[in-house]
């Protein structure tokens, strides 16, 4: 089978290209450091991207715009609970994941009971989460407990711990999607909700589980990111809104739903970091960097679509 027919290969090729071009400038020096940084920062994008991928798989119109607000709220409340006291890392994790569950539940209730389009429901809800975060944060920057900060910035076998978390999560999502009944149900729902319902699939259960998962993933990413960067900040999630959608699409998942791609999300997450560091090392300013990033995203989408037409 032609490996180029795998949709996820493109994001990995793009990431490898950006990696090679960056190293071309330093004639190979710093390869390890660059790879390490890409894995660290890519992990956060990959975790939220996996969640967004599950939601987008649900079909047209499904997207979660509350990811940044959920990340911020989970991180803020978790760090506040831990209050830099040693030995509270798991309490903090429980608080963060609890926030994620609550946010996901609230999002889904808005969609189910008020029949709001998910875009609008998650947008409106995110404004409320943001307010809660502002209210509970009060501009304080609480440091994470030292052991947690050490864990988040540490490594095992040369791979950053946050990347291990992201890879583990990716493996779980892949198994659930490809090897479990739930995953098949999710894909079926995304391909044709009506047909899925007629086939006896509990569509609403699937949707509920998906919106819960994306919020829990976002809260995990927020918890890890705050521990990694020495505290929660109110704007810590901002860039992950567009990032989460971008990595799903560059990763080769269908934006129309019903077709998801776990390895591609990781490839795209690495690519999104590497392309910025590539442009940085070539001395591009913030404006040029942004223009080129956008152009590359569109180019990848066009490349993916022409391949689809030929196939």
């Amino acid at each position: 089978m032609n490996p180029l027919s795998k949709p996820w290969i493109w994001s990995w090729l793009a990431a490898a290209g950006a990696f090679a071009l960056t190293l071309g400038l330093t004639s190979g020096r710093g390869a390890g450091e660059l790879g390490y940084a890409a894995l660290s920062f890519g992990a956060f994008a990959a975790i939220v991207g996996l969640g967004q991928m599950l939601v987008i798989t649900l079909g047209p119109g499904n997207v979660d715009l509350s990811i940044p607000a959920t990340m911020t709220l989970a991180a803020t409340l978790a760090l506040k609970t831990m209050g830099t006291v040693e030995g509270t890392a798991f309490v903090g994790l429980a608080v963060a994941l609890g926030v994620g569950l609550a946010a996901g539940f609230a999002n889904y209730m808005l969609i189910l009971l008020l029949r709001l389009p998910p875009i609008i429901a998650t947008l409106a809800a995110s404004l409320i989460y943001q307010s809660l975060a502002i209210w509970s944060n009060r501009g304080l920057r609480i440091k994470p407990p030292r052991e947690l900060a050490d864990f988040a910035t540490g490594q095992v076998m040369g791979i950053p711990n946050v990347a291990w978390a992201g890879l583990l999560l990716a493996a779980v999502v892949w198994v659930v999607l490809e090897r479990s009944v739930w995953g098949r149900w999710l894909l079926a729902t995304g391909q044709n909700t009506h047909a899925a319902r007629l086939a006896g699939i509990p569509v609403e259960m699937i949707r509920a589980a998906t919106y819960l998962s994306v919020a829990v993933f976002a809260s995990l990413a927020g918890y890890l990111l705050a521990s990694f960067s020495g505290g929660a900040a109110l704007n810590m999630g901002t860039e992950y809104l567009l990032m989460s959608i971008a990595v799903v699409v560059i990763g080769g998942s269908s934006i129309a739903g019903g077709n998801s791609n776990v390895p591609g999300v990781w490839g795209a997450a690495l690519f999104m970091f590497l392309v910025v560091s590539m442009l940085n090392s070539y001395g591009a300013g913030a404006g040029v960097r942004s223009v080129l990033t956008g152009t590359i995203i569109i180019a990848i989408v066009i490349a993916a679509s022409t391949r689809r037409v030929r196939a």
């Binding site: 223009v291 080129l292 995203i297 679509s305 022409t306």
Partner: peptide
């Protein structure tokens, strides 16, 4: 023409417009 997902193309364009704006008015 290429049957592209508008949500992604406009997402990419938001980086392009934002970059141009920064370029004009840093």
């Amino acid at each position: 023409a290429l049957d592209l997902p508008a949500i992604v193309v406009t997402l990419g364009m938001s980086f392009v417009w934002g970059g141009l704006a920064l370029f004009i008015l840093p």
